[in-house]
């Protein structure tokens, strides 16, 4: 743990670039949120289109959160990614069941 000291300007520069990416991510997230809210607020489209579109927007945002804000894109995140995807797998099954086969 001694070799990778961070006083050098290279590392600082890298952090800065990373932060710039984070800001772009944030701007996109805010953009998606505004789009999502305005779809609903203006009644711009039919329910059949609106609902899938809203879900897609949410998924993209969540992807940004995980991969950029939480650094899942970085190295050393193989296990976190595996466990999150494992959780998503169980989560999808749970939601599918509770949506599809509770009422009939």
């Amino acid at each position: 743990m001694t070799d990778n000291t961070n006083t050098n300007s290279f590392q600082k520069q890298k952090n800065k670039e990373e932060m710039k990416k984070q800001l772009i991510t944030f701007a996109l997230m805010i953009g998606f949120t505004i789009v999502a809210f305005s779809i609903v607020a203006t009644n711009a489209m039919d329910k059949m289109f609106a609902v899938p579109l809203l879900l897609i927007l949410a998924l993209i945002q969540v992807g940004f959160q995980f991969y950029y804000f939480m650094h899942m894109k970085d190295r050393g995140h193989e296990f976190p990614a595996m466990m999150i995807y494992g959780g998503v797998f169980a989560a999808l099954l749970t939601i599918a069941a509770l949506v599809a086969i509770v009422w009939w």
């Binding site: 976190p80 466990m83 494992g86 959780g87 169980a90 989560a91 749970t94 509770l98």
Partner: peptide, 10 residues
């Protein structure tokens, strides 16, 4: 957080 995913999914 992987576990929390299932919690909120439920």
């Amino acid at each position: 957080l992987g576990g929390e995913t299932v919690l909120f999914a439920s």
